[in-house]
Design a protein around this nucleic acid. Structure first.
Length: 341
DNA sequence: AAACGCCTCAACCGCTTGTCT
DNA sequence: CAGACAAGCGGTTGAGGCGTT
């Protein structure tokens, strides 16, 4: 495959666009369409390469571009889609009308990625990190605690608050680690939903997504749940969602997987094309006519039942509702947890 | 007020993919 | 089938804005 000549041909302007250049480009495209990007600069009277013109148009001048801050719903959609698609910015942008891939990529790199890291999640896998750096926030909290102790009893209320926070975090960390252990592909205690013995039904990507979703769910705390790790007790926060209020697992189909083929899992992809709030689209992923899901492999809808999930998660998730909590779990983690504001 | 550091995001770079000859 | 070209895509860069010292 040959490579297109780069824009570094001598004489062509680079760098920020001037309002005059913008005007020229807009007028030309509105009148003639962009046609061949390579030919466009000459025809439009611009001393730029075609690539630069295309980028300026698609990322900035296009009339349907939405400007301003990302809404909470958009953030949530990006997180959900990123857990499925990874760094496929254009595919993600296809589900966010008016947003460009570049904008989403920047937003991810400057905001969402940092948030996940801060929370101890691997931004690429959306799973809790197990390396030493993931413990850093907690180590820092311990340092703060020691400082408080050093300051003596005049900071008693502050100390109490800090201790409660640490207890809550420790409890959550323990449960995260426990569930992650259960979800390890080689751990048979989660027999019903590992790729090893479900590989006829579910591919690795779907497994990772489920893993991510299940980890997320841990922040929604069930006051009645019994946790198997030590003496840690769940600390119910004001923003916790009672499990009884969550939808039943059976009402939710398999999370959408980019490798699924329409005719193998029609409901999921009908849902994507129907858009948010569709009864078939519980993940609330906005629709797009631009994004195509590549039919490279086939993964029929997974048949994880409430029973199989609750049996295998055992006490860690003592009630039902598994996949359906994905979006609410993320929003709780990212937008309501005072630790990460 | 100046210097500094951090953050954001528009723009670029280079690779990949798709299409045409 | 191979090569050339066009367009798309994701990673990276750097100018400018902003807050802090």
């Amino acid at each position: 495959m040959g490579r297109s000549p780069c824009c570094d041909e001598s004489g062509l302007k680079k760098g920020p666009w001037t309002p005059e250049e913008d005007q020229k480009l807009m007028k030309y495209i509105q009148k003639n369409g962009h046609g061949s990007w390579r030919a466009l600069p000459k025809l439009a009277g611009l001393n730029r390469c075609g690539k630069s013109c295309r980028l300026r148009w698609t990322n900035y001048l296009r009339p349907d571009i939405k400007r301003g801050k990302f809404s909470q719903e958009e953030e949530q959609t990006i997180l959900n889609l990123h857990s499925i698609l990874g760094n496929k910015w254009s595919a993600i942008a296809g589900h966010l009308p008016g947003r460009t891939d570049n904008e989403i990529k920047n937003f991810w790199n400057t905001h969402l990625k940092k948030k996940l890291i801060q929370m101890g999640f691997d931004p690429m896998t959306h799973r809790p990190r197990t390396d030493i750096f993931s413990s850093l926030p907690h180590l820092l909290a311990l340092v703060n605690l020691k400082e408080l102790l050093d300051h003596g009893s005049s900071h008693q209320s502050c100390w109490d608050e800090q201790a409660l926070r640490l207890q809550a975090e420790a409890s959550q960390m323990a449960r995260l680690q426990y569930l992650q252990c259960l979800l390890q592909p080689n751990n048979n205690s989660f027999g019903a939903a590992t790729p090893n013995n479900l590989n006829d039904f579910i591919d690795m990507e779907t497994f990772n997504l489920l893993n991510s979703l299940c980890s997320s769910q841990l922040d929604i705390q069930d006051p009645t749940a019994q946790y198997p790790v030590g003496d840690f007790q769940p600390v119910v926060q004001d923003n916790s969602v009672p499990f009884s209020h969550l939808p039943d697992l059976q009402t939710y189909p398999t999370p959408p997987n980019k490798d699924m083929v329409n005719d193998q899992a029609p409901d999921q992809f009908t849902a994507l094309s129907q858009g948010e709030n569709s009864p078939n689209n519980p993940w609330n992923i906005p629709s797009s006519s631009n994004t195509t899901l590549s039919p490279t492999s086939v993964a029929p809808p997974m048949t994880v039942t409430e029973t199989s999930v609750s049996n295998n998660l055992g006490d860690a998730c003592s009630t039902s509702s598994y996949a359906g909590v994905a979006t609410s779990a993320w929003s709780d983690l990212l937008f309501e947890d005072p630790f990460f504001q």
